[in-house]
């Protein structure tokens, strides 16, 4: 399951999706909106995606993770639109026979999302707004 959605993300739905009788571990990662960033008081993060390509890139990350680690199933759902303080912007769930593979694949997925998946966030803060990442360079996607 590799999707972008405008709805709130259902953690249990992802856990159910990756549940597997051969798995001894399920690791989840939840990315949430923090109330501060670089000294600014954050009100919300407003996410925008190139949805068709974002879902393809998320699926590609899933394939890559399966090559690198012995995992059973993976699900990644990224929310777009405004995500307020404490709400989830992204949830990743990974199942594996053993926990080390699940932890490492989950970590890989969130790090890669930040590099190659065409999703952007605008930080809305007290006194202004800014597209995050546009003030610096970005690495080429790993491929």
């Amino acid at each position: 399951m590799f999707r972008v959605t405008r709805e709130a993300i259902d953690l249990q739905g992802l856990v159910d999706f990756v549940t597997d009788p051969e798995a001894g571990a399920i690791v989840t990662f939840i990315g949430t909106t923090r109330n501060n960033n670089e000294g600014r008081k954050v009100i919300a993060l407003d996410y925008e995606a190139y949805p068709e390509m974002a879902e393809k890139e998320l699926a590609r990350l899933g394939e890559e993770a399966k090559k690198r680690w012995d995992i059973r199933r993976m699900a990644i759902v990224h929310r777009i639109g405004p995500v307020r303080i404490t709400e989830s912007s992204v949830i990743i769930a990974v199942s594996a026979a053993h926990r080390a593979d699940a932890f490492e694949a989950c970590r890989f997925a969130i790090e890669e999302i930040k590099k190659s998946v065409p999703i952007w966030k605008k930080e809305l803060f007290e006194g202004g707004e800014v597209w995050i990442g546009t003030q610096s360079g970005q690495p080429l996607p790993g491929r």
Binding site: G31, T32, T33, R34, L45, Y47, A49, Y50, M53, A54, H78, S88, S89, V90, I110, I113, K114, K115, S116, V117, P118, I119, W120, K121, W131, I132, G133, T134, S136, G137, Q138
Partner: peptide, 11 residues
């Protein structure tokens, strides 16, 4: 064609 500005998904 899409010109992709620096991505910033995740959280």
């Amino acid at each position: 064609v899409v010109f992709v500005p620096p991505v910033s998904g995740g959280s």
